[in-house]
Deep mutational scan, measured.
Amino acid sequence: HNLTITQGKLFFHYNPKLCLSEIHKMEEVSGTKGRQERNDIALKTNGDQASCENELLKFSYIRTSFDKILLRWEPYWPPDFRDLLGFMLFYKEAPYQNVTEFDGQDACGSNSWTVVDIDPPLRSNDPKSQNHPGWLMRGLKPWTQYAIFVKTLVTFSDERRTYGAKSDIIYVQTDATNPSVPLDPISVSNSSSQIILKWKPPSDPNGNITHYLVFWERQAEDSELFELDYCLKGLKLPSRTWSPPFESEDSQKHNQSEYEDSAGECCSCPKTDSQILKELEESSFRKTFEDYLHNVVFVPRKTSSGTGAEDPRPSRKRRSLGDVGNVTVAVPTVAAFPNTSSTSVPTSPEEHRPFEKVVNKESLVISGLRHFTGYRIELQACNQDTPEERCSVAAYVSARTMPEAKADDIVGPVTHEIFENNVVHLMWQEPKEPNGLIVLYEVSYRRYGDEELHLCVSRKHFALERGCRLRGLSPGNYSVRIRATSLAGNGSWTEPTYFYVTDYLDVPSNIA
C-alpha cells in the first residue's frame, strides 16, 4: 500500500525493539523526510534493546553428524571492536523451508527459537588472519532439518551509529543413524509349514526405512522333555500350542467401542483428552525405555581390526524358502538304536541362519518350516543398504507352526516275539517326523474274553527296548493296539495285532 503524509511529521519514542533503520525507511515511504526535528525521533529510546544489523554474515563451514552440527561463519568486528559482546545463534526444527525470524513471537518477546549466546573469538592483530567464530550444536535429532541463523550482539553506541551483522536463515539436516526397533511384532501360524509375521514401523526411523531383515531359527525343545518319565503317576503330560491366527481386521481397528449394538453396526467412541494424553505418555515412556535398553543392555560386537582377528559373527547367506525346513542338525536320541526319531534339535552355532529381506511392506510369510516346531524370529529395521547396512537392534518374537495331521501315527506293522515265561516283546517304529517329539506310547492289549488293559511306555523305555515287553501273560489269544502321544496330543491307534500265548508248562520236552 502507498502511504503519503502531505502535512505533519513523524514522532517515535520509547520503541526499544524498533531499529532506527526501520524508522528511516518509514520517513522515505511516507514522504516526511526532512520535516522531523532532532528530538522527534529519539536516538536513545528507539532500538536500544534490539540488534540492528546492516551487514550480512556468511557461514564459512558446515559439518553434520547424526546428532551434531558444527558451524563456522566469517569474522565480524565493528569499528570499535570492544562493542562486540558476542553472537546469538538461533535454531529450531523446520520440516519445511518457510521459516521466518519472527515465527511464534508474542507480545512478551518470546519466540519459538532456541538461542545460544556465543563469546567472540580472540581478536588477531592481523586483519587478514582473524579467527572464524563458530559453535557445535549438540543433542539434535537424527535425520531432522533445522533452520539456523546467527547475528551479532553489540553494545549501545553513544554516537548512535547503527552497526551489526546478521546471516540469512539456512537449512541444515542432520545425518541418518540406526533406527529404533520395529514396533509390535506379531507372529502367527496359518499352516503346519508357515508363519505369518506382521509389525509396525519404528517410532524413530532416523532416516528413510529402506528394508527390513527377518531372521528365523528353529528352537530346540526343553531338555526336561527328553529326561522326564511322563508315565509316572502324578506327572502331567506336557503340551505345546501353536500360535493362533490373526483376529479379523475389524476387531483390530483402534479407537473402536468394545460393545456392539445388537441391531447392527455401531460407531466408534472418540477417545477423551485424558485417554489420548495417557497414550502419549505411555508411548514416550516406551521410547525412553527402549533407548535405555539399547544403550545399557546391548553391547556392540567388536569388529575385526587390522591384526587379522576374525569377526566372530557368522556370515549372512541367503537361502531359498524351500530350504528352511531342514535348518537344524538332527541327532538321534540314543545312538545305539537307529530307529528312534531325530527330534532332539541342538543347533550348531556355526550354522548360517536363513533370512529374508523385506522391502516396502511390514509383513512376511515364512514358508518351508517344520510342522509343530518353535521358531525364534528376529526382526531388524534398516535405513541404508549400501555401502553397508545400517540397521536397528533386533526385536524378537516366537511362534510355533501348526501340527501336521497323521504325523504322530505309527507307520509300519507292530511285530512281536514270544519268549519263555510268557513274555512277549512288542516292537514298532517311532514316527519319523512327529509333531514336536514323542513323549510316550500307549499300549492297549486284551486277552479274548477279558477286559482291555493299558500300559504306558516312556520315551526312554522305548529307546532301550525298541518297544516294550509284556510279562506274566496268561495263555490265550491276544490283540494289541499302540498309539503315540506327542507334544500336540495323541496320534491314531494302530491296526490290531494278534498273537497267541501258550502255557509254557505244557511245552513238550526233548528229553527222552
Rank of each mutant, 00 (worst) to 15 (best):
E452R: 06
P346L: 11
E281W: 02
I482C: 03
L321T: 13
V507Y: 05
S257Y: 09
R301N: 03
I377S: 03
K253P: 03
L470W: 02
N383I: 04
G491W: 00
H416W: 06
V296W: 07
P346I: 15
F372H: 13
E452M: 12
V345F: 04
C456T: 01
Y500P: 03
G412D: 11
P205A: 08
R481L: 11
V423T: 14
D409S: 10
D222S: 11
P238I: 04
H416C: 10
S492M: 11
S344K: 07
E217D: 14
G476R: 00
A405K: 14
L464N: 11
T497K: 04
S257D: 06
D222P: 07
G489E: 01
K271P: 05
E465P: 01
G436W: 02
E227C: 10
H294G: 09
E290M: 10
P338K: 05
S274I: 01
S284N: 10
Y478K: 00
S320Q: 07
V324W: 05
S320D: 08
S284H: 06
T343Y: 10
Q380W: 11
S315P: 10
N477L: 06
G322Y: 07
N435R: 01
P354R: 10
M402N: 13
P332M: 12
A484E: 04
D450H: 13
N206A: 14
Y212S: 05
S392E: 11
E258M: 03
R316A: 14
A407Y: 06
A463Y: 06
E495M: 02
P403S: 07
L225E: 12
R447T: 08
I209V: 12
P387G: 08
Y498C: 11
S363W: 09
S315L: 11
V334N: 11
F462P: 01
S341P: 08
M402F: 15
L228N: 09
N422A: 15
T485F: 05
H371C: 12
L237T: 06
S458N: 06
L225R: 09
L437C: 11
S251M: 15
P245N: 03
S203P: 02
H211P: 01
K287H: 11
Y504E: 15
V507Q: 14
S283W: 03
P434R: 03
T386V: 04
V359L: 09
E388N: 13
F246L: 10
Y292D: 08
W493E: 02
N383W: 03
Q275V: 09
A407F: 11
S239H: 09
G234L: 08
S248C: 14
L321F: 12
V329Q: 07
E465T: 11
S492P: 06
P496A: 15
E417G: 08
A309F: 09
N435Q: 01
E258D: 10
S367I: 10
D273E: 10
L213M: 14
P332H: 14
S486V: 01
S492E: 11
S268K: 12
K406F: 08
E351T: 14
V501P: 02
L225N: 09
T288Y: 15
N422C: 05
S268N: 14
Q256N: 04
K233R: 13
R471K: 11
G489H: 14
N208R: 06
A263T: 08
R447N: 09
S509M: 07
E495Q: 07
G489V: 08
P475M: 08
E260P: 13
T343M: 07
Q275F: 08
A484H: 00
V439S: 06
G207C: 01
T386I: 15
R313S: 10
S305R: 13
S262E: 01
S474F: 07
K357P: 12
R316F: 15
H425T: 08
F419Q: 13
E495W: 13
V365W: 03
V457S: 03
C267E: 13
E247N: 14
Y500E: 02
V439F: 09
F215P: 01
E217Q: 15
F372D: 03
K271E: 08
K302N: 09
Y212Q: 00
S223C: 13
E290A: 14
V414H: 01
R376F: 14
L237S: 05
S305G: 07
A336T: 07
P475H: 09
L232R: 13
L277C: 01
K432R: 05
V297T: 10
G325R: 04
E310V: 03
E217G: 12
H416V: 10
P314R: 12
E404V: 09
V397R: 11
P338W: 11
V480C: 15
F355Y: 09
N255W: 15
P338Q: 12
F226A: 13
T307L: 10
R316I: 08
T386H: 08
G264W: 07
G207D: 02
P244K: 11
H454W: 04
W428L: 01
G264R: 12
T303Q: 13
S367A: 15
R313H: 00
I438G: 01
L455K: 04
S398V: 12
V457F: 09
T373G: 08
P475D: 03
Y500N: 14
E465R: 04
Y396S: 13
N326V: 05
V397A: 14
P354M: 13
M427R: 09
T288M: 07
S509Y: 13
F355I: 12
T343W: 12
L225K: 04
N208F: 06
D450K: 03
E420F: 15
K302V: 06
M427V: 07
V334Q: 08
I410A: 12
W216G: 05
R240P: 15
D503F: 03
S223R: 10
L213F: 03
A395Q: 14
F289H: 05
D385T: 02
T307N: 12
E350L: 09
V329R: 06
L369G: 02
Q252P: 07
A263I: 13
A463I: 10
V439H: 09
E282T: 08
T494A: 04
A309V: 12
E310H: 11
M427I: 12
T485L: 12
G476V: 01
I377F: 06
L440A: 10
A463M: 10
N208K: 12
S474H: 09
S223V: 10
H294R: 14
D408Y: 01
V414W: 02
E495S: 08
C468A: 06
V365L: 14
L225T: 11
E290F: 15
R400Q: 04
S304G: 09
N339Y: 10
K361L: 08
S274M: 06
E389H: 10
L228T: 07
R240C: 14
D503K: 15
A263S: 12
E389Q: 13
I276S: 08
A381S: 11
V423Q: 09
E430V: 11
S283A: 09
V414C: 03
V214P: 01
D222K: 11
V424E: 02
A335R: 12
Q380L: 12
F499M: 03
V324Q: 12
V439K: 15
R376V: 04
Q219D: 08
T502I: 03
E465A: 09
I438L: 08
G306S: 09
V359A: 08
G322P: 12
R240E: 11
S315M: 12
D503I: 00
L453M: 10
L453V: 08
K317F: 11
Q252E: 14
D273M: 09
P244D: 11
G374K: 10
T485S: 12
T303P: 14
K357M: 11
A335Q: 08
Q384L: 07
E465K: 04
E221K: 06
F499C: 03
H352C: 09
N383G: 05
I438N: 03
E247F: 13
R483F: 02
L437T: 00
S474L: 08
S474D: 06
Y292Q: 04
N510Q: 08
R471S: 04
D311C: 03
P245L: 12
V414R: 01
F298D: 05
T347A: 12
F298N: 09
L280H: 15
N208M: 07
L277R: 12
S203T: 11
S305P: 14
I377Q: 02
N477P: 09
D273P: 15
G207L: 02
Q380V: 06
R483E: 00
K361V: 05
E389S: 10
S479M: 03
I438Y: 03
S344Y: 08
P431T: 06
N255R: 12
C266N: 13
D291A: 10
F355A: 12
P434N: 04
I209G: 10
E433P: 02
N339T: 08
Q256M: 04
P270V: 09
K302Q: 09
F499G: 00
C269M: 02
